[in-house]
Design a protein around this nucleic acid. Structure first.
Length: 521
RNA sequence: GCGCCUCUAGCUCAACUGGUCAGAGCAAGUGACUCUUAAUCACUAGGUUCAGGGUUCGAGUCCCUGGGGGCGUACCA
């Protein structure tokens, strides 16, 4: 028994009263808080200001990984990380320490540190952050290690780590306390590494093609660019109702009017709708616009971009999502929507057909419909209910009804259709793109049609954006636009089924209970 | 919003049809151990079985209400 341990034990006893009301980890948190007090009493700061690190664990492996078992390099390094495993052997302790790059073993011996230093190291708990100074060596069993000459506590953890083998699997806790998930679960760290790689790849890919990254407002006077219910808020000083954006589209196209020929934005958008494995109220959207291009150019861009993300994230263009293999290698098939409906529902429809006929087609296909839907909406419903869920993909679904696409250019060959596609993978929309509508008169009419829907009670339709039409009146060059849900792209290349797995802090109902409350001291 | 499933120690999980059933592993405490690798070994402690009602001689188990989560569905161009 060392003096330090005596202090800690006494302090624990002194704070026994807190145990009964401590909501976390039984008495473990109180015990560790008592250690913090004991450290301070000895003049040790359990939360010091900084540490000079010379090497990450990966760098130690890179430079000294070749050492022979049992060899000492003689090179001194300073490493830092969280203690995730401890193996105490009496006068020798092995600690596995993890930093952002991996893990490194600390080799800690009584003979080197002396009684006090060794006893203090023995007082560490799993989860504590430490900094260590020592010689790089390899144990007789061949484990690369730092033989510790000096060390210090960098941050005391007062809550215990989850099970070191089984990790943390409770989804509620994993998402609410993502920090614990990231500590405990290798797969969580992997998924977010994929996410960061995908976003970096998108930026690099588009910059290589001379797209300029821009930032546009999140607060809109009038939400537009998509069919969705916005969140609303209020600006106090201006006494102005505002909406959070539901898309990036309208501002980006204004920039093309201004002469910026290729722009993109990766930004958060917000939609006030239900939650599911595929929907989070706020999610990250990529939109890019290219002057003088049309939707066929956007198809090429899409398949190349997605394939490149998959290559960077996984090394190849064939991904596996829960046992289902998807080959993302370009080119992807391009199929008109009306052909697909004919294949899957056995009926040749067209948005130019009479409403009664299309309603009958829906009824025969067992697709529920609402009174008042126009022909375009009926055709779209037929597609979404009978075709989309069955498309393994990747596939480009081409040429949507004009009525349901108020921002897309009328099709060059068919006035009832627009030049629009969605990329579908595993029955889900991954990308949405058009040859953009550039005619200000046509655009105003489309907006007015939406405004009539809104007036009729459709809370996902929006009114006329006068400033946007004014911008078009200055001349929007012919252009193609593309939107990709980054979260869904990450899900695809990371091979996960829930959007919550790829969002660091997914939206959940408010937490109940007192575990997150103030410390009981 | 609706339907189904689920909630047991800090973590991961047990407990046949209601009947010594509140248990195990990890984590924690004590002890042994100078080459471990999820270290090992011995001992110890740890619970409002999500909350509140109810049925019963008896409820972790059955019923009701509420809460969290999951899945499906609706909504989601």
């Amino acid at each position: 028994m060392t003096e330090a341990r005596d202090d800690a034990t006494d302090a624990t006893d002194a704070s026994d009263a807190t145990d009964a009301t401590d909501p976390s980890a039984g008495g473990e948190r109180a015990r560790r808080l008592a250690k913090v007090a004991a450290l301070r009493a000895r003049g040790v700061d359990p939360y010091p200001v900084r540490f000079d690190r010379t090497h990450t664990s990966a760098e130690v492996l890179e430079h000294w990984g070749h050492l022979e078992a049992g060899a000492e390099s003689g090179d001194v390094v300073r490493v830092a990380g969280r203690v995730v495993l401890l193996r105490r052997m009496g006068k020798l302790t092995f600690a596995t320490v993890r930093d952002g790059s991996g893990t490194i073993q600390l080799f800690v011996s009584l003979a080197v540190l002396g009684d006090d230093g060794f006893a203090a190291f023995d007082d560490l708990d799993l989860g504590d952050w430490v900094g260590a100074v020592g010689t790089v060596m390899k144990t007789r069993k061949g484990e690369l290690s730092v033989q510790v000459d000096e060390w210090c506590l960098l941050a005391k953890a007062v809550r215990p780590l989850p099970d070191k083998w089984h990790g943390l699997s409770d989804t509620d806790t994993r998402f609410r306390q993502r920090y614990v998930d990231l500590i405990a679960n290798e797969d969580a760290r992997r998924i977010f590494a994929v996410r960061f790689a995908v976003i970096a790849t998108v930026r690099e890919f588009l910059r290589d093609r001379r797209f300029v990254e821009v930032e546009t407002p999140v607060l809109h006077e009038q939400a537009g660019g998509a069919a969705a219910r916005p969140f609303t808020t209020h600006h106090h000083a201006l006494d102005l109702p505002l909406s959070l954006r539901i898309a990036l589209e309208l501002h980006l196209k204004r920039l093309l009017v201004g002469g910026m020929e290729r722009v993109f934005e990766i930004g958060r958008v917000f939609r006030n709708e239900g939650l599911s494995t595929r929907h989070n109220p706020e999610f990250t959207m990529l939109e890019c616009y290219e002057a003088f291009a049309d939707y066929t150019d956007m198809m090429t861009l899409t398949e190349e971009l997605v394939a490149e993300c998959a290559r960077v994230a996984t090394g190849g263009t064939v991904v596996d999502v829960d046992g289902v293999t998807v080959d993302l290698t370009p080119p992807w098939p391009r199929r008109p929507m009306l052909d697909l409906i004919e294949e899957h529902a056995g009926v040749r429809v067209h948005p130019g057909h009479p409403v009664a006929e299309l309603e009958a087609a829906c009824d025969r296909a067992g697709v529920p419909r609402e009174a008042g839907w126009g022909p375009g909406k009926l055709v779209l419903e037929l597609y979404e209910k009978t075709v989309e869920p069955n498309l393994a993909g990747p596939v480009f679904v081409l040429d949507y009804p004009r009525e349901v696409s108020p921002l897309a250019r009328t099709h060059r060959d068919d006035p009832e259709l627009v030049e629009r596609f969605e990329a579908v993978v595993l029955g889900r929309e991954l990308a949405n793109a058009f040859s953009e509508l550039t005619d200000p008169v046509d655009q105003r009419e489309r907006f007015e049609a939406q405004a009539r829907l809104a007036a009729a009670g459709d809370d996902e339709a929006h009114g006329v954006d006068d400033d946007y039409v004014r911008a078009l009146e200055f001349g929007l060059p012919p252009c193609g636009g593309l939107g990709i849900g980054i979260d869904r792209l990450v899900m695809l290349v990371a091979g996960v089924q829930s959007i919550r797995e790829v969002i660091l802090f997914p939206h959940l109902r408010p937490e109940v209970g007192d575990d997150a409350g103030p410390p009981v001291l």
